[in-house]
Design a protein around this nucleic acid. Sequence first.
DNA 1: CACTAACATGTAGCATGTTAGTCATGACAG
DNA 2: CTGTCATGACTAACATGCTACATGTTAGTG
Lengths: 243, 243
Amino acid sequence: MESPTSSVLDALNRNPSSLTDLTISAVRQGVANGALQPGELYSVYKLAEDLGISRSPVREALLRLAETGMVKIERNRGFRVVLPSPRDIAEIFSIRLALEVPAARRAANHSEPAPRSKVRQQYKSLELAAESQDIAAFEQHDQQLHALLIAGQGGHRTVRLVNSLRDSTRMLGVSTMGQERTLEEISLEHLPIVEAFEAGDGEAAAASMKEHLTATGRLLIQKALKATGSGDSVDQIWSEFAD
Amino acid sequence: MESPTSSVLDALNRNPSSLTDLTISAVRQGVANGALQPGELYSVYKLAEDLGISRSPVREALLRLAETGMVKIERNRGFRVVLPSPRDIAEIFSIRLALEVPAARRAANHSEPAPRSKVRQQYKSLELAAESQDIAAFEQHDQQLHALLIAGQGGHRTVRLVNSLRDSTRMLGVSTMGQERTLEEISLEHLPIVEAFEAGDGEAAAASMKEHLTATGRLLIQKALKATGSGDSVDQIWSEFAD
DNA sequence: CACTAACATGTAGCATGTTAGTCATGACAG
DNA sequence: CTGTCATGACTAACATGCTACATGTTAGTG
């Protein structure tokens, strides 16, 4: 194996864990910035070469991503980044609603000073990223804000689960972000959640979280429907999964 | 490579897919029947030898199981089957409640003849397994019944997700099954759900599903608390995650 | 006797060789 | 022109060799 590229080394130094984890991050990033196109066929061979590492960790990374549905592996053919169907999106958001709305309620009802300042801080970072149109940073702080609102008591599994669901819709956000909704608008949707959390108002937190997720989910479904040219309506699909 | 054991061959014939999948099944089964003890340290090396295959598919299987939390891999040491803490169990059931209760409601409200007969049939199999004290069959039909009640429109992800959550608590069921509750009792808990589903009564289905999952979850937490000798109460832990 | 350093052992993680399956291409028969 | 079949390129899946590391043990030091 020749000398790894500097970016690989950098990532290695930041995170001494494993090349598999590194590869997972790399694929996520590639999907986020469009380097990996949904539907296109790629091979473990080439990806390993590009990353300057061997096939084993790359393969392991892809298997784990396939487990979450972000990627599909085709035997003896290669792998594809999966573009979720409108129904997939609806299901994903129905799950997120089922998990995050009660979580937001509980979090607000039990909110304490320390997590409050963290949430506020995270929201400020989100605003900042929105102002400077930094989509990558925006995505990251959005994720961390949602994670904070779930983590309350230590819902590790729930956080991991929601993060993996976000993975599946990440490639949709890329094209959507800053078009239908500006980053500022999305950022503002979080404000009532944060305020309700700080006020310890569980019901308000739940309601505004529900509104936020519903708006996001429906928008992504609409986007996906336009892309597929299907005749189905957003309402119809949405009603199959969420109320 | 010597001759694989007959059980391995059997599993291979049933499922011609991949050795990785075979290994996942083998580990699940090993956990279910106590061949793999929680907390004990095992090695990929030996497991691969026992299965009569190479280390690669075994390693891949364990990585995927680690992803779901059923197993923990320790670098350069081995892997352990994870015994979930009382809090872990509470979180798992809070997730299952969030997903399965609304799913049961929707399923009942949209129930049609075809799925109805399938559900009824699955319930009969469950009863039968309970009568004959066949724990393995009982587990399987229990899982399939829950899956049917979720799958409604095609909630593939939700089904997979719930199945993976069940994985994490499987080793607890082993020791519990047929002690605190008899199989017949557990089977009977499903009856009101099935009846509400057949009657198209969403609210009743949701309520009885909630009752069933709550009873199961609390029982497992109690069991786990006794094992750890902790002073926490079931109510206290339960209230941190579920309502 | 306490305490440390060298070493033996066993492991995950990674690299790489091997096997067998899939598909595109094009020759060729009808 | 069309459908069939050989063939070659490419691939995932699997097997296996290698390396660095974590840990328990033992030998050496005060």
